[in-house]
Amino acid sequence: MASANAKAQPLTNGKLKLMICDDSNIIRRKIERELQIERLQVIATAANGKQAVEAFRKEPADVVTMDITMPEMDGIECVENLVKIKPDVLILVISALSDKATAIEALKKGANGFLCKPFTDRQLTEALEELLRGAGNDD
């Protein structure tokens, strides 16, 4: 399995590793710029599912933000692959809410939460904090 050559070392500063996956350069930059969570550090960005899986194999992130509609490999397939590589990865799907069934499909594949586009920096921060609080956590 691919996880055999994955370097799962934590960052020396103790932060959690974040990967941003979105085909829109604007959205990727927006997430990166508006990220206000000290515990997270962006280690990779990907413009499609394929790039994301490749980057993830080299260095698996702890947290991933994932668009659904992307060229080459869409978010749903990508989520499935990432979870196979690292089952405890936290994935926040960030997508336009055009079709709830598609979003649910991504969550069925193993994503942990959903954030609707367009989003404000505050909504992004809250969603990521909720994500870090733990999957399945409803306190």
Binding site: K100, A103, L107, A111, F114, L131, A135, G136
Partner: peptide, 26 residues
């Protein structure tokens, strides 16, 4: 109905964060 049943099944699962899926409640 199908989407709704999928959504409810998600809530029974371990992975999904309840608060982060409210917006996609069909």
């Amino acid at each position: 109905l199908k989407t709704a049943m999928d959504y409810v099944a998600l809530l029974w699962g371990e992975r999904v964060n309840e608060k982060l899926v409210k917006t996609i409640n069909p």
